[in-house]
């Protein structure tokens, strides 16, 4: 049993769960959390590969992913607050101005 290979499989499972949450959830905050879950899964794969190939660049990339996730969370939360203020709902089904 190899730790890094198992971590890669776990990362794929978490990513799949994130995709399911992204597609099936209706609350915009929970959808955002599913995106964070997917980012975390990718980070885990980066760290596992970094250990397996003995290359620390993978861990540097995780740093950058975390920074981008923080920036994304700040802007995303501002957008969510704006949507909630304008639509009076957090349901994505109600945000359909662009829908034909």
């Amino acid at each position: 049993m190899d730790l890094a290979a198992d971590c890669v499989v776990l990362s794929a499972i978490l990513f799949g769960l994130g995709v399911v949450g992204f597609v099936f959830k209706r609350n915009i905050i929970t959808i955002f959390m599913s995106i964070e879950l997917m980012l975390n899964a990718v980070n885990l794969a980066f760290v596992a590969f970094s250990r397996q190939w003995h290359d620390l660049s993978g861990q540097v990339f995780v740093f950058f992913v975390i920074v981008v996730a923080a920036a994304e969370a700040a802007v995303g939360m501002a957008i969510i607050v704006l949507i909630a203020r304008n639509r009076h709902s957090l349901n994505v089904e109600r945000v359909n101005l662009l829908k034909l």
Binding site: L3, A5, Q52
Partner: peptide, 20 residues
């Protein structure tokens, strides 16, 4: 999707280099 991802990424994690 999960299975495909796991399968492809597993193939890229060489078990031989697991000197830890």
């Amino acid at each position: 999707l999960t299975g495909l991802l796991a399968w492809r990424m597993w193939a890229f994690a060489p078990a031989a280099a697991a000197s830890a």
